[in-house]
Design a binder for these strands. Sequence first.
DNA 1: GGTGAGCGG
Length: 149
Amino acid sequence: MATRAAVAAPRVLRRFFCTNSASSSPSFPFIPPPPTGAAPAPTRPTAEPNTNLFVSGLSKRTTTEKLREEFSKFGVVTHARVVTDRVSGYSKGFGFVQYSTIEEAQKGIEGMDGKFLDGWVIFAEYARPRPPPGQFVNNNTTQYGRQLS
DNA sequence: GGTGAGCGG
């Protein structure tokens, strides 16, 4: 009787198409097409409005002083920094600007986003909320709690 | 030496 073997085979294939049975996604592990098609939001859905600004597209020569100086024209900059590499000391081409209020931050974005700075078109947007410094943060662990070694 | 998308101290 080979009937048993013929029934056992499809059962294995059923595990493929019904991984965790249903109740989760009615579709296969393929790529589910967006139904409404409202917001594509590929990978960067622009963070919520806050006083912290993420400025990208900066020139390698742009420094923190220049960044604060330019953004101070649209509000009170409480904090500004151009991210530079610790080892080489070169600028990574982006920085952060923090205004006193969200209104000033909005004016800063509308006033500096798409503008030229040191010959480069910069992009100003709201910075993403950073993970809070945990109590278990140490030298061997990152801010996300992942072991480095 | 300094790329050219991105989210740091």
